[in-house]
Each structure stands twice: as C-alpha cells, then as structure tokens.
Design a protein around this nucleic acid. Structure first.
Lengths: 220, 220
DNA sequence: ATCGGAGGTATTACATGCAATACCTCGATG
DNA sequence: CATCGAGGTATTGCATGTAATACCTCCGAT
C-alpha cells in the first residue's frame, strides 16, 4: 500500500463497490463473481478485482465454488439463526464492556445515533439507509467496548446476516421496535449499567431472531 | 482453483508453510513478511505469496504496516485478554450447543481426544504438539455444535491467541489442569448437560486467562 | 556536531501474459 | 430418441513486467 496514503488504493475501491452492490441487490445472493467480467465492467485489471473477490470470501460475503469461481453468499434461515446466536452472545459482551468504559463523548455519540434513527421514523422506510444506520450504531457500541477482536468478529457476522435480514427494515413495526430496543441499550450504557447493557443487547439480538423468523414465514 | 481438485494449489501450500513457520517460531511476532523475499526463499512467484500474506492479514495473524509491507502479529497481554474474553463467551456457546446436538460418535471423538491428551502427560511436554492437540480438541467441540459461523469466528480468535499462549504448554501444571478442565467439558457434553457444558467451557477459558496472566508475570 | 537534502534501494500495487483445466454446447451414433 | 464424445469457451491460478512511492544512508552545509 505504498500509494495508499493518498487514499487511492484501487483494490479497496473495488472491494467497497462490490460490497455496496451486494447490499443494494445489484449482486444478489448466488450471483457469480467472475473476475474477468467484473474487471471489464469496472474498467480495471484483474489484479485488484481478484484481490477484492478473495477478500469477500475471507469476510464471508462470498463462497468459493470449486470450478465456477466465486458466488455471492446464499444464506438459509438456519445459517442466519446461527449467526444471530453468536451475535446474541457477542453484542451482549460488547454492550457490557461499553457500559464499563464509555466516556461522556462515547455516550453522546451513541445517543445521537439512536435519536437520528428515531427521527427517521417520521420519514418513509428506506431499507438500505436504515440498515446502514443500524450497522453504524452497533459498530459504535462495539468500538466503545475497546475490544478490537470482538468488534472484528462482529463485523463479519453482521455482514453475513444483513444479506438476509436487510429487507426487514421495510416493515414499520420492525423499525419502531428497533428504536425502542436501541434506547434500552443506550440508556444502560449511559448509566454505566454493564449487566443491564449486556441483557438489553442480548435481548435485542434475540428479538431480531424472532422477528426474522416471523417475517421470513410471512414474506417468504 | 481450477487445479485445486488434484490437491496442488500453490497459494494454499505457501499459506500453510507460513502459518507453520509462524507457530514454530521461525517467523516470530514482528518478523517482516516481504513478498519478494518470501517468494525467493520458497522458490515460487510473488503471486501466491502475496495472496497468502493477505490471507494472513485477513485471518489476523499478520498486520499491514503502511510503508513496510506486512509483519507477523505482535500481541500484548491486553489484546490476548480481549481475545480470551470473546472465547469465554463463544466457547461456552459452542459447548452448550455441542451438548445438545452431540451424537454418540461425536462424544466418542471428543472423549478420545481428551484421553489422548491425558496420555501425553506421561511424556515430556512438547509445546507445539500439545498446543495443536488442544486446538484440535476445541475445534472438534465447535464442529459438533453445528454452528459454522461460530466455529469460524473461534478459529480466527484461536489463531491469534496461540501466538501468545503456546508457550504455556511447557509448564507441567498447565498441562495437567487443562486435561482436568477438558474432562469436565467432555463429561457435560456426553451427558447432554447443555448448561453444564457451557459453564465448564467458559470457566476453562477464564482459567486460561488467569493462568496466562500469572505465567506472563513470571516468565516475562 | 547537527541538520537538511539528494540518491539509492526496496517495497507495494497494478497490469498483463499464459498454460491448464473443467464446463457447456452441439453433433454424431447406436 | 437417448447417449456419448469432441471441441469451443470461459475460468482459474501462477508468473512476470512496470511505475510510483516512501524509507534509509550518506554527504555537504551551516
């Protein structure tokens, strides 16, 4: 990354483009990730594209199919439930540690994100925007926990699960209950209530799993 | 991976070589991972080496230094404690699920590994071998849990922590107490006692953290 | 003696060439 | 009509060329 300082880094840019397209649906689950085809479409050589595709595989957003290159990850409900079971444990741990370590600025940042999310309830749902804000909020709490391995592990898990659950943000009831649950976490962190924060965060993830099951049963 | 079926895959082979050398100490923490130098030493081109080094970075075993290539991860005690805090939660979850799902064969496999480890107490310590067997045992439990995202997350965490803790296996007392704690986990899994398995596994990891702190204070 | 700068050196990041290999299409044959 | 096989095609995986860039060393100037 010699030239990285200037902020260029073609491979990084390609990676972000691919991630965006995956979450926007331009590259739906199961879509082939052909290195030559993507290189041609993005007008770069195969090197940064190959690097980005392998990074997607490492991050768990794509799977390597022995003789057919890579494809965007396809999750079934059981896999998402597994991911959420891990998140239930780890987001609880993250909130617990965040409650112990949060500075006044940390708390202010978390509260601001929750209130911004609450404000968005006045506007019509925008699943992509709402999902991003949700990720940002959870990421903030994890950063405040000060446990980097924990935050890294959760980032990967989030990326996978959101491939499956981002559509839930279209439902009005899900948006509202998410804000309520986020407020509970934020309040506990603000109060320095480590155990309460852990329980609130774990309960939030567990509730997501329940809502996901209902939503998936209804929507298909 | 077109030629992968035959088992070749140069990049995979290079990756395994690098991981082995890292754990054997041939590439100690902080060692530079120069792509051209490694390519020359391993007598392959830079492509598979570059791919392997980036994989090491993604797996958390190396860090990317802006203008100096990559270096083998250097952990301080705090980082290891963070990793172990995550493991405490996740290995508990893994054991819990393993207790729920384990078949008779699964149990037999776990017990066999624990007894093999117990048998090794008769022989002098071999930190590298003992650490590998320990990883194999924990990996088995995680596989039995049936939660792949959980097992994947733990695999990365293990890799990082073992860079720091593998030396503990040289201490006789650590070896013996590890077997005792492993037996508790195995017994609970065999009995289908999900809650007991979770507690036993969490306590095991917590005890590792305590032993690590004492060991690190004593040894340096 | 210390500080500043120029050149050498090593590295990264990207582009591209190339062989091997597996899949798919299509036609020939029983 | 079904099945088998051959060829075309697209892909991967590895090798190598190349420009840009930052660091390190050393030397001169103050």
């Amino acid at each position: 990354m010699t030239t990285a300082e200037s902020g260029s880094l073609l491979a990084e840019s390609v990676y972000r483009t691919l991630v965006d397209q995956i979450f926007e649906g331009a590259l739906p689950p199961g879509a082939p990730l052909s290195v030559p085809a993507l290189a041609a479409r993005l007008d770069v050589s195969r090197s940064p594209v190959r690097e980005s595709v392998q990074r997607l595989i490492h991050e768990g957003l794509a799977v390597h199919v022995p003789h057919a290159g890579a494809r965007v990850l396809e999750l079934d409900e059981r896999a998402v439930r597994d991911v959420l079971a891990v998140r239930e444990a780890l987001d609880g741990l993250a909130a617990q540690e965040a409650a112990r370590r949060a500075s006044a600025d940390d708390v202010a940042g978390i509260v601001e994100l929750v209130e911004r999310q609450a404000g968005l309830l006045e506007e019509p749902a925008d699943p992509l925007r709402d999902a991003r804000l949700d990720v940002e909020l959870h990421t903030r709490v994890r950063e405040v926990s000060g446990n980097r391995p924990l935050a890294d592990a959760l980032r990967r898990l989030d990326a996978q699960a959101h491939l499956y659950t981002s559509g839930m943000w279209a439902e009005e009831s899900n948006r509202r209950v998410a804000v309520v649950e986020h407020r509970r976490i934020a309040d506990a962190v603000a109060a320095g209530d480590a155990d309460g924060a852990r329980q609130a965060a774990s309960a939030h993830v567990a509730a997501i799993a329940v809502r996901m099951h209902r939503w998936r049963s209804a929507v298909g």
